[in-house]
Amino acid sequence: MLTVILQQGINGVVVGSLYVLVALGLTLIYGVLVQINFAHADIVTLGAFTAYFVTHLFSGNYFAGIAAALIVGAILGWLVNAVIFAPLRERANELLPLIATIGVSITLQNVMLVLLGPIPYAFDTPYSNNVIRFGGIFLTMQSVLIIMMSTIAIGLLYAFMKFTILGKALRAVSQDRETAALMGINPNQLIMLAFVIASALAGMSGAMLGPVLVLTPFAGTTVIVKAFAIVIIGGFGNVEGTIIAGLIVGLIESYTTQFLDPGLIDIVVFALLLLMLAVRPTGLIAEKREENV
C-alpha cells in the first residue's frame, strides 16, 4: 500500500511539475497585462510536436528536441504579443485580445489537424523505456528527466524574478505599470519579455508532456484547462501559489486515477477549483492589495 502511495505520489509530481511550467507562463502574462492568452495551450502542443520531429530528425537526441521546442515557443510568444496584444493594447479594450487569442488558438489547432492528422502520435524518447527500480517503486528515466528539467526551469525563473534588475522591473510592471514607466522602464519591452519567457516555458513543457500525453493537435487544450484551474487556485499572478497549486493538482490527478477512477480527474480538480473560489477567491497565497497609508 505504501509503495502504491509513493509510486502515485511520484507520478503526480511528474505531471504536476509540468502543469506548473504551463501555469507559470499564464500567470506571468496575467501579472504584467491582466490579460489571458488562450493560444498558450497551442504553444504547448506545438512544443510537443516540435520536440517529436526534431528528436526524430536528430536520431533520437531528445535534448535537441527540448531545445527546439523552447525556441519555437519563444518565437510564438513574441509573435502573439507583437501581432495581437501590442496593437490591440492601443485600443484600450480588454475583450479584444482575449477573443483574438481564442481565434489564434482555433486556427493553430486546425492547421495542425490538417498537417498532422487526428491520430495520436507515439512519442517515445530514449528515456521512456529506461526503468529504474527502488524497492517496489518504478521510475522511468523520462520521469526523472522531467522532474529535473522542470525544477531547474522553475528555479531559474524564480531567481530571475527575485535577483535580476529585469526580473524586478517585471514585478514592478505587474504591480504598477504607469509608475514603472516613471522609473525609465519601457513597459512594452517588459511585456514582450514576459511573453517570450512564458511561451518558451510552454514550448519546453510541451516537449516533456509529449511523451506523457496523448499527442494530438488538441493535446494542449487538456493541459491548459488544468493550468487555468491551477492559476486560480494558486492566486492569479502569484508564483509561489502557482507552484504549490500545480503540484497539488498533479497529486490529485494521480491519486484519483489510482483510488477512484481516471474519468473523475477533471471532476475532482474542478470541484476543488469551485471550493477554492467559494472559500478563498484570492487563491492559496493572497497578496494584500490594499494600500498602506
Binding site: K168, R171, A172, Q175, E178, T179, L182, N186, E287, E291
Partner: peptide, 29 residues
C-alpha cells in the same frame, strides 16, 4: 521612460511605491 532617461523624474500623487518590492528594490528600480 524616455523622459526619465533624459533627466526628468516625477514623484506621483499618492506616492505609488511598488508595494510588494522591498525598500531596497524600489530604490534599485
Amino acid at each position: 521612460d524616455e523622459r526619465t532617461n533624459l533627466g526628468i523624474a516625477l514623484v506621483p500623487e499618492g506616492r505609488h511605491v511598488f508595494p510588494f518590492l522591498t525598500v531596497r528594490e524600489n530604490l534599485e528600480l
